[in-house]
Amino acid sequence: MFVVVGATGNVGFATSLALRKAGAPVRAVVRDSTNAAPLRELGCDIVLADLNDADAVAKSFADATAVQIIIPVAPRDKDPAAALRHSIDSLIKALKLAPPKRVLAISDYGAHVADDIGMPTVFRGFEQLLGQLDVPKLILRSAEHMHNWARVIPVALESGILPTFHDQLDMTFPTIAAPDLGRIAAELLLRPADERNLQVSHAEGPRRYSANDVAAALTELSGRTIVANAVPRSQWKQAFEKNMTSSLAELLIKANDAQNRGGLVDVEPGSADVFHGETVLIDALRPLLARF
């Protein structure tokens, strides 16, 4: 039995789909049943459990061969950063209460960096807590998701300017389509169990892209000229806080600073275990434009 926590999300659903296609039984853990119909159609067992209810989540782990966990970020929460850390603590407690045979945890590029670089540092703490568990662990660090560009697509379509926090418009960075990440996770879960207590892998797309590449893809898809424009560093805080609380904005500002420095929000040095998705940027952006 494979248990997928957060199975209604883009990554969790993709993992569930890939596992079911392989004929594996899946128990999908969801917060509410509103969006569970597609999972039921796949043949998943549905279990309702709030991530912050460690006892309920632990019960969903019963008899699990493996559990996939992903920590969701809730930008609309009163304090998303605190909620993120609370969810981590709750999941760790659940894993201690009901240890599965294996755990696959979705983490973040840059989680190996000791300095405080915002969001990746939160996941560094997550990995450290996981390290205390006496169960075999697969940590899959994910590059930034391609669908995150959806936040600024309306502005780009209206103005012809793609705002970006990448201060070097031609600097390429790792990114991945969420469905590819879920599929890679499923492939790892279906592999025979490894004797190692801890494995760390990375996942990104078929190639790396720059902000200029994103603008070019949007130009091709929309039929109008769109150019990338770096948001001045002095305006970042104001720009982020239009859509989120200051605590979450701080995490993302630090992460973008680290990304612009280069080599930090990236594959851990010396790691050769990097998986590549198949979805190219323009194909990931195509359905996003259909929303506007």
Rank of each mutant, 00 (worst) to 15 (best):
L190F: 05
H166I: 07
H202D: 15
D170I: 03
P99N: 12
V155F: 10
E204S: 07
R183A: 10
L104E: 06
A216Q: 15
H112W: 15
K137R: 15
A217Q: 05
L140H: 00
F123L: 15
A211Q: 05
L188T: 08
F173L: 09
V122W: 03
A203Q: 07
T225Q: 08
E195R: 06
A177V: 11
R191K: 15
V122G: 01
D167A: 04
P154W: 01
L140W: 00
R224P: 01
L104D: 08
D134V: 11
S210W: 08
S107D: 04
I176M: 12
S142P: 09
R196D: 05
G125P: 04
N148K: 12
H147G: 02
V103H: 11
I176Y: 06
D194N: 12
Q199C: 11
L104S: 12
T225E: 05
Q128E: 14
L130S: 13
M119G: 02
Q168R: 14
G118A: 00
L130T: 11
R141W: 05
L198T: 13
K96F: 02
L104A: 09
M146P: 02
N148Q: 13
K96S: 09
P206F: 00
L140Y: 00
P163S: 01
H202R: 10
A98T: 13
A203F: 06
S222D: 02
E220A: 15
Y209E: 10
G223Y: 01
P120D: 11
A156K: 03
A150Q: 02
P192Q: 04
E144R: 13
E158F: 01
S210C: 04
A203T: 06
H145F: 13
D134F: 06
A111M: 01
E220Y: 09
M171H: 12
D180V: 01
P100Q: 02
